[in-house]
Computed example of a mutant assay.
Amino acid sequence: MRIEVLVDVKTILGEGPLWDVEQQRLYWIDSFGCNVFRATVDGREIRAWDVPAKIGSMALRKDGQGAICSLQTGFHALDFKTGESTLIADPDGGNPTLRLNDGKVDRRGRFIAGSMDTMEAGPNGSLYRLDPDFKVTRLDSGIIVSNGPCFSPDDRHLYFADSWSGEIWVYDYDIDTGNVSNRRTFTKVDTSRGGAADGSTVDAEGCLWNAQVYDAKIVRYTPEGKVDRVIDMPVKKVTSVMFGGPNLDILFVTSMAKPPLPRFPGDGVLRGSLFAIYDLGVRGVPEPRFGA
């Protein structure tokens, strides 16, 4: 195993690595810089788009017209050709204390994303589903910081974390309807060093990989929720993970250059870098696109 800096653009709050198998390109975002980035597998041909508000996550569209973005001001459609963002819906009704955060697409083209309390203090956020026809449905509520949604390879389970709960949860997921049920604890996160569950992905073996922000660790959990592997990272504030590359065997890891609140720790010179981890002996699964 080796860890390398792939791109050093010093993202204020890097998040959401997304490998697109069609284009063979890696996308990621800067939540507080209000940017979407794209690069080749070796970190070249960097392209960036601005969005009009803080961004929590994105999904590429099946129609090839751009992306769906979860912004502080709601779900937006980003046109890659024009750079324009168009509001789809604001499920939190313009509440300035909330913003949409992490999200992923299921294998029927629905975008699952949650909102968060901007001060990371109160259980004011919700988990939403954006359907291909742009209908929005609330799936759960009472969440402080929505993070890490991802799906089991058999589509039967949705994993999700409220970062400050100290747990990663699992729901039963109905792939036909997009509904969730039977929320329960998948695993408890070791928060003794101040870390918390952030972005996640699931590999081809059904194991969940979670970035544990402020604790400099990537943790792999078995489908039973047991710790299988721990990777120590060169920065504390790792934020999210995604497998990509031609063989889906490179783990891309985002990080943040500046903590969102003063109580969170600083970091070293590699803060805000996009990392690539090679030779893990594990492959991911292709990430779906949004749309019918």
Rank of each mutant, 00 (worst) to 15 (best):
R2D: 14
R2T: 15
I3N: 13
D8A: 15
K10N: 14
T11A: 15
L13Q: 00
G16C: 12
P17I: 10
W19E: 01
E22V: 13
R25K: 10
L26S: 06
Y27F: 13
F32H: 10
V36M: 12
R38F: 05
T40A: 08
D42G: 00
G43N: 11
G43C: 12
W49S: 12
D50T: 15
V51I: 08
K54D: 15
I55K: 05
G56Y: 01
G66C: 02
S70V: 05
L71C: 02
L71Y: 03
Q72L: 09
Q72V: 10
T73G: 00
T73F: 03
G74D: 10
L78E: 06
F80D: 02
F80E: 05
G83S: 02
T86F: 00
P91R: 12
P96T: 14
R99L: 10
L100H: 02
D102M: 03
G103H: 08
G103I: 10
V105L: 06
D106N: 12
G114M: 10
S115C: 07
S115I: 07
E120L: 15
P123E: 11
S126F: 05
L127Y: 03
R129H: 13
P132K: 00
P132W: 00
F134Q: 14
T137R: 06
R138E: 09
D140C: 11
I143K: 01
V145N: 04
S146V: 08
N147G: 13
G148D: 14
P149D: 14
C150M: 11
P153E: 11
R156W: 10
L158F: 02
Y159Q: 07
S163P: 07
S165C: 12
E167L: 14
I168F: 08
Y171L: 04
D172M: 13
D176H: 06
T177Y: 03
G178R: 06
G178N: 09
N179P: 00
N179D: 11
V180K: 00
N182T: 10
R184M: 08
K188S: 15
K188A: 15
V189N: 09
G194P: 01
A197R: 09
A197F: 12
S200V: 06
S200D: 10
V202K: 13
D203H: 08
A204T: 09
G206Y: 10
L208H: 11
W209L: 08
V213G: 07
Y214T: 15
K217I: 00
I218K: 02
V219P: 03
T222W: 11
V230M: 08
V230C: 06
V230S: 06
P234W: 02
P234A: 02
V235C: 09
V235F: 08
T239I: 09
G245K: 04
P246S: 10
N247H: 07
L251S: 02
F252N: 09
V253C: 04
T254E: 01
A257Q: 12
K258Q: 11
P259K: 02
L261I: 14
P262V: 13
R263K: 14
F264M: 10
F264L: 12
G268R: 09
V269L: 09
L270M: 14
L270P: 08
G272D: 05
G272N: 02
G272Q: 03
S273F: 05
S273G: 07
Y278R: 01
G284F: 04
V285Q: 04
